[in-house]
């Protein structure tokens, strides 16, 4: 419900995201190893916004678990996941998209949250029920940002 509204606002604000191009979480198709070929929005990701989403504690909060030399000016890089230096050189866009949408499709049993899944999580808080952590465009933006992290 909320998402539909947010989308409507995006469109009204002149965003190029058309509803028809938006892939709902349930409609995402994964490859055998969890990669997702199809863009969630059809709109190319914005790497600068992706970096903001990567950093924001209530959005991606990626730095909490992953070290990233590109953000060396930021304190406290996490150690839970692998460092992301050079990831744009050895992972494809589809692989990265799949890992952000639902990394469990690539790494079974991983601690990493799924950022574009709206399942019935056990004991989910009401305010997050049916919601994804990131919007479709935010996922695309983070993918675009990660693709800039090349060796």
């Amino acid at each position: 419900m909320k998402r539909t509204l947010a989308l409507a606002v995006c469109v009204a604000m002149g965003g190029s995201v058309a509803l028809a191009d938006m892939l709902a979480p349930a409609d995402v198709t994964y490859g055998d190893y969890g990669a997702v070929e199809q863009s969630l929005t059809g709109t190319p990701g914005d790497p600068e916004n992706g970096a903001q989403v990567f950093l924001a504690r209530k959005l991606g909060n990626c730095l909490a678990c992953h070290a990233n030399s590109d953000m060396a000016d930021q304190p406290f890089h996490g150690e839970v996941g692998p460092p992301l230096d050079g990831i744009g050189s050895y992972r494809t866009e589809a692989e990265l998209r799949g890992m952000i949408i639902n990394s469990k499709k690539t790494f079974q049993g991983t601690i990493m949250p799924a950022f574009y899944v709206a399942d019935d999580f056990t004991r989910n808080q009401d305010k997050f029920e049916g919601e994804t952590i990131l919007t479709a465009q935010q996922v695309e933006d983070v993918v675009a940002y990660l693709m800039t992290l090349t060796d």
Partner: peptide, 16 residues
């Protein structure tokens, strides 16, 4: 595993 982040106690306090 619980919540939108879908984590169990063990994910942090046993594995990490």
């Amino acid at each position: 595993r619980v919540g939108q982040l879908d984590m169990a106690c063990a994910n942090c306090h046993e594995d990490n």
